[in-house]
């Protein structure tokens, strides 16, 4: 998993840099139209892309030869950055600012059958846990040393899966399906239980390809507690959304009750 740090290694930063440029461009369009865009979303985008850039930066990537650093990179790229980016509502921003033709394309993707299948909890949970198990508990990670392309593709897949989870649980963007709050909580419990079990299996049976047994154990504990911390933030975000939504309904009910000429109860 060690790469020789060179000029080429910095190329990985092009991805978050491009994303930041696009987001800022969209935000600029809204500003020129004098349309409001929540500042928290702008901050979430900045935070998420900064985390992603830090995790992809050559000094940290050079450290990922040591397993705990690799786990830190994994937590940042696959869990923390997607969590923040899901809050930044980039798809909503794109839908509001894109010209008509690409906008229609984006809408077609959002309504497409594959995305509908991909966002089903029965697909997301096994996909996420299966990918993680394949990466850490099988010889796959050893094979990735040999092929840089496979390495990039596998990590791309992990990041996209992480995004799918975050968007499904707390995303502010339109999705082919919206889960009820109890369903979100259930998905979160299942994922988090699965992460815990995988981290303990990794601790119990450190695969040879990942490094010295002590290092893998330290990494497994970081995966366990770090994953818990991020999942705690996810749980708070899921419930905060519920609290705001039911609060709006409650205030509407109270207004109706107060304006009614005769008390209804």
């Amino acid at each position: 998993m060690t790469h020789p740090p060179g000029a080429g290694a910095w190329l990985a930063l092009l991805l978050p840099a491009t994303a930041a440029a696009l987001y800022l461009a969209g935000w600029g369009v809204l500003r020129r139209r004098r349309t409001a865009w929540p500042r928290t979303r702008l901050l979430a985008a900045a935070g998420g892309l900064t985390v992603a850039a830090a995790a992809l930066s050559p000094p940290l990537v050079a450290g990922t030869g040591e397993f705990p650093w690799h786990v830190a990179q994994h937590l940042a790229l696959v869990m923390l950055a997607p969590l923040l980016l899901a809050c930044s509502a980039p798809v909503t921003l794109a839908l509001r600012t894109l010209p008509r033709r690409p906008r229609r394309g984006l809408l077609r993707v959002l309504h497409s059958a594959p995305l509908r299948v991909l966002t089903a909890p029965a697909v997301v949970v096994p996909l996420e846990l299966g990918s993680l198990a394949a990466l850490y508990l099988t010889p796959l990670s050893g094979l990735l040393h040999a092929s840089p392309l496979a390495h990039v593709l596998v990590h791309e897949h992990m990041v996209l899966t992480g995004c799918l989870v975050s968007w499904l649980l707390i995303g502010a963007d339109p999705m082919p399906r919206r889960l009820s709050t109890p369903a979100r909580a259930a998905v979160l419990v299942l994922l988090s239980a699965g992460h815990g079990v995988l981290a303990k299996l990794l601790y119990a049976h450190p695969p040879a390809g990942l490094g010295a047994a002590d290092e893998v154990r330290a990494g497994a504990e970081l995966l366990y507690y770090g994953g818990d911390a991020i999942e705690l933030v996810l749980a708070v975000a899921v419930m905060a959304e519920w609290y705001r939504r039911t609060g709006r309904r409650l205030r509407a009910e109270q207004r109706r009750a107060l304006s009614a000429p005769v008390p209804t109860r």
Partner: peptide, 9 residues
């Protein structure tokens, strides 16, 4: 795993 995740959720 399930109980740990369930308890803090």
């Amino acid at each position: 795993g399930l109980f740990h995740a369930f308890s803090w959720t």
